[in-house]
């Protein structure tokens, strides 16, 4: 008899626990990200799950989605219920904000403009650097075959173009006509203008076209790791700072009740462990102390111009001036 009573009591206790929400169910978090972050978040999700369990908060499974940054933002706007977005450009997160899903001023919620890691554009050249490519000026030299995707269709390629523009601007004393002439020379040297960054990587790496590939630093290191001994990375003295932002999608976390988890997920990106994971996947950690641990492959003397520099005036201004129909790029490429 007493056994039955004990069982009933145990059951009651369990019900009480469930009712009090103390028995933790598996928690799930959806991270909608862009293309090249797969390996980064695979490693980070594991680390975060350990951290979260270590806090006694239970098990968490992170569901990943990857694709082109603008396309991914679109799917969130259309109802793909991401708890967090980790995209390539602030303009894509702003699109979600304008759809009313993310609160205004999201970029100020986390440190460093909500960009826990950054990246930049570097040159991938063939072993031994036979054409002696050291700086942006070398890309305009006769006989240098350049591979870059098309800035009209590829987000990554716009950074390439703007980095070249920034170099010319400093070089020729802020003379727009000369900047344009220089960038035109670089694009005259382009052998294959693929529509996306992965296509350009394949053209250069697999098909052996061209002398230099303009690439994301993290992608360039991936190519290096995949085909050791075939390529070298040249970091030019100046380049552009790409700031991929992260944000919480307010409407969806409130609907699903995942705000605490999602906030912790993004904040942990800034922890020492999160920063080291970014660094070991070739993203530049924002923490100035931790990036020093990776000075083996990040050139820390690199001078970086940002998109918010008066030269460009932010993404929207740069977009409409350079890449809209009839913009500077159209003029350069149709002449």
């Amino acid at each position: 008899m007493s056994r039955r009573v004990a069982m009933v009591l145990a059951l009651l206790f369990l019900f009480g626990q469930v009712a009090a929400g103390r028995v933790l169910a598996d928690q799930e978090l959806t991270n909608v990200s862009y293309d090249p972050t797969r390996e980064l978040y695979e490693a980070y999700n594991e680390a975060f799950a350990r951290h979260w369990a270590g806090l006694g908060k239970g098990d968490v499974t992170v569901v990943q989605s990857h694709g082109g940054s603008a396309k991914q933002a679109r799917s969130v706007i259309e109802g793909n219920e991401a708890d967090v977005v980790t995209l390539a450009r602030a303009i894509d997160v702003t699109a979600i904000e304008e759809a009313g899903l993310i609160g205004k001023g999201w970029q100020g919620r986390l440190a460093r403009n909500s960009c826990p890691y950054t990246s930049t554009i570097v040159f991938l050249v063939r072993k031994g650097n036979p054409k002696g490519i050291r700086d942006w000026g070398d890309l305009a030299r006769e006989g240098v075959g350049v591979i870059t995707p098309n800035p009209k269709t590829s987000g990554g390629a716009r950074w390439n173009y703007l980095a070249a523009w920034a170099w010319a601007d400093a070089q020729y004393g802020h003379d727009d006509a000369r900047n344009e002439e220089f960038v035109k020379k670089v694009f005259d040297n382009v052998l294959v203008l693929d529509s996306g960054a992965r296509g350009s990587t394949n053209t250069f790496v697999q098909n052996g076209q061209g002398d230099v590939l303009l690439a994301w630093e993290n992608e360039a290191y991936l190519s290096l790791a995949e085909r050791p001994g075939e390529f070298e990375i040249v970091t030019p003295p100046t380049s552009i700072l790409a700031e991929p932002p992260v944000a919480l999608v307010d409407s969806y976390v409130d609907k699903k009740g995942t705000r605490e988890l999602a906030t912790a997920y993004l904040e942990y990106l800034y922890s020492d462990e999160g920063q080291r994971i970014a660094g070991s996947h070739y993203y530049r950690p924002g923490n100035p102390e931790i990036i020093k641990e990776f000075s083996g492959y990040f050139d820390l003397s690199l001078k970086l111009v940002t998109i918010d520099d008066p030269l460009f005036g932010g993404w929207e201004a740069a977009q409409s001036r350079h890449f809209s129909d009839g913009g500077v790029f159209d003029r350069i490429y149709s002449r």
Binding site: T30, V32, V63, Q64, S65, H66, G67, S75, N80
Partner: peptide, 17 residues
């Protein structure tokens, strides 16, 4: 699909990824 890994990826989508 939304390409949610392990949730909305069918075999053809998985192959592309």
């Amino acid at each position: 699909s939304g390409h949610l890994r392990g949730k909305t990826n069918t075999l053809p989508l998985h192959i592309e990824i």
